[in-house]
Design a protein around this nucleic acid. Sequence first.
DNA 1: GAACAATATGAAACCGGTTTCATTCGCCGC
DNA 2: GCGGCGAATGAAACCGGTTTCATATTGTTC
Lengths: 330, 330
Amino acid sequence: MATIQDIANRANVSKSTVSRVLNKSSVVENGKREAVIRAMEALDYRPSVIAQSLAGGKSMTIGIVTQNIGSPFTDTIAQGVISGLAGTGYSPIFVDGQWQQSAESEVIRTLLGRNVDGLVLIGGHIPTEDINKLRTQLPTIAIARELDGWDSQCIHVDNEDAGFRATKHLLDFGHRDIAMICGIKEHPDASNRFKGYSRALAAAGIIPSSELVYQGDFSAQSGVLAVNSWLASGTHFSAIFAANDMVAFGARLALHRHGIRVPDDVSIIGFDDQAESAFMTPPLTTMRQPAAEMGAAGAAAITQLIAGESPELPELAIELQIRESVARLR
Amino acid sequence: MATIQDIANRANVSKSTVSRVLNKSSVVENGKREAVIRAMEALDYRPSVIAQSLAGGKSMTIGIVTQNIGSPFTDTIAQGVISGLAGTGYSPIFVDGQWQQSAESEVIRTLLGRNVDGLVLIGGHIPTEDINKLRTQLPTIAIARELDGWDSQCIHVDNEDAGFRATKHLLDFGHRDIAMICGIKEHPDASNRFKGYSRALAAAGIIPSSELVYQGDFSAQSGVLAVNSWLASGTHFSAIFAANDMVAFGARLALHRHGIRVPDDVSIIGFDDQAESAFMTPPLTTMRQPAAEMGAAGAAAITQLIAGESPELPELAIELQIRESVARLR
DNA sequence: GAACAATATGAAACCGGTTTCATTCGCCGC
DNA sequence: GCGGCGAATGAAACCGGTTTCATATTGTTC
């Protein structure tokens, strides 16, 4: 590979001059500039990002910390970030936060060692204190995670409100005995959705029954377990609010196994609107999270943040996606 | 951040010595070694990967080229690579091949500019010639793609055989009018699956009817279109072989809309076994691709290749995952 | 005890850029 | 016509490591 020195030799100028035309950091006489450009083309020159990083202190690299790898929602966000970063000159490097117990130890080590220019945190359970520490060292954007006093650097959506609206949708259709299958207990999104559920019931004058809430874990399997346990205990419900679409799939299957029709006998509403949901039988009514958009917004925000601008975060909202899994209570 | 020079000063040795204990590249007297180690701990030293890259020529970075971002299958492979690379010291950097038309132009530019030590190609349609060019420059592993004369660097599974077995499974259950919804025409996996389908029919003495094969594109939507078109034209079929699970979901929904039962009236077999498939109603019989394993194998292989060893590729097979969407023809 | 081999270590060059600093040159005004 | 100033450019230092090479030190052998 040609180096900057090769270019300099060929164009009969110094390294410095080549660097100048490369970065437009200073005026260069026209003749020399052209000579340099010709030389670069002739030698198919491409600067070494590595060397630029070392000299310039910038690595043109952004660390992406994933935790819930395998979850359709966070994976979609990650894809949004990748494509959002394409063409910006920044390359995403991925770190799996799950791999090491302590985020502090390995993740931060690799990221700082690699001089990443910025950090994008996707969801996850990295302790807040660690994040705050990171944040002081690097431009950081968190996606799908709320952090106190951080509004301008968090891309998140209002899960509590969405939980409320999901439940309200069910209430509007006449349902009273609304069961909920919760997500991972410690997960803020999960608890916010549950809070919205509780608030909606309360607002409708319904006393939430603890029998109707099942502590799941965002997996489809937890959806079938929830339904089975309610059915076994004879608990009555006419609608289910699932913490996410995977859970809804599980619940839907369990109902099917017991000969319970959806939505005729029981309605289901999900959360996420993953690609498969539109093709469930029946197509799943769900709260659509704009995952890809969140990822893209995160990509845009981090580059702005690095550039010293204050990022402008788009208004992203969770929207009720009405399909066919919810019916009026007969 | 502490540099190697800081350590050297604190331990009263030279940079060279510090570098030696760091890489164990040469023997260092015990006393000094310990002094160095103490100094490193005291200063919380972490070497700059950037500087190491520049000096050593290695970047400890592996380029991952994705193309079909959004496809459950390739995404799962990518996740497998990420987690397979965790803890190896190599970091994956992602490039979205789709972004630029010509693979040559941008992708290769960024990758070479970043001095990646190796390349992992996931699926995709990068022209073979470009790949061959790349391959001469860098250790390269291709996942989910066959390339002539490259066996030791391709992690792929036998799609033709799997297509054969899927079709045979349907035949074994008494089906004769077996429809197929194909994937993207140009995609080798798609055409191999179709070849297997044709071969199985031929082996059973059935003349494949062109009306029974629908040219889809791996999307769920193409699944519904296929079914609708057959139904509209009055084409008879008792089983469907879908190019992947998404297509199967679409087909299943379309059948549902027409009141056709699965598997009682029509059987469906899919391909991939993505997470949702086990929770389709009814759970989908499908050809399971070991996507995560392929990704992990790719990660292992690329590190071996870089180390100069010849990679040992595990035997990965597509397995028939029998569930409930295929029934004996009544 | 002297000559020589083996071993540990430091100085310096190098990787490929950026950036500071000094120098040269041309142009301006008085 | 000369001093002064700004613009263009090159030399050199620097980023943080690795690696070569030379040197100092120790140990071995006869």
